[in-house]
């Protein structure tokens, strides 16, 4: 087994710290799907939403100047557009993503967060199995 899990654990602790700051200082649940959703549909265009988004984009942008980074994402337009639509639509309908329902929800034992997380992980595992091993499209 490689050492990626160590970076995963450390990165996770940093992600949780970000959520802790946002909760304790601002009194908000850290949810990037709600940030995008609130900004595009006009339901929440507060300075906090703009500030959070700016910080989230800026730090990796600065780091990318020093360390080469890549997402290794698909270059198939249909995959990217369909995936983006499903992620944007689904997280807004369910009112949360891996951050809001996952990190922030499970950690307070929110029943909705736990059920949502079990559903998206289960659906994701089923989808990868079908897309990769049955249909061979990803």
């Amino acid at each position: 087994m490689d050492i990626n899990w160590i970076y995963g654990l450390l990165g996770g602790l940093v992600i949780g710290t970000a959520g802790a700051v946002y909760l304790l200082v601002n009194g908000r649940v850290m949810g990037p799907s709600s940030t995008v959703g609130g900004l595009v549909d006009g339901s929440d265009r507060s300075g906090e939403q703009v500030g959070f988004l700016a910080g989230l984009i800026a730090v990796p942008a600065i780091a990318a100047l020093m360390i080469p980074m890549q997402t290794y994402a698909s270059s198939n337009w249909a995959v990217l557009v369909m995936g983006g639509l499903l992620v944007g639509f689904g997280t807004r309908l369910a009112n949360g993503c891996t951050s809001g329902h996952g990190v922030c929800g499970i950690s307070r034992l929110s029943p909705r967060g736990i059920v949502a997380s079990a559903t998206y992980v289960g659906a994701g595992m089923l989808a990868v199995t079908l897309l990769r091993h049955v249909w061979g499209v990803i």
Binding site: G83, G90, N95, C97, T119, A123, G124, A127, L131, I138
Partner: peptide, 12 residues
């Protein structure tokens, strides 16, 4: 919504 999100997450 979570199922749709999971599918898009898996796809990309």
């Amino acid at each position: 919504g979570s199922a749709a999100f999971g599918a898009g997450w898996a796809l990309t």
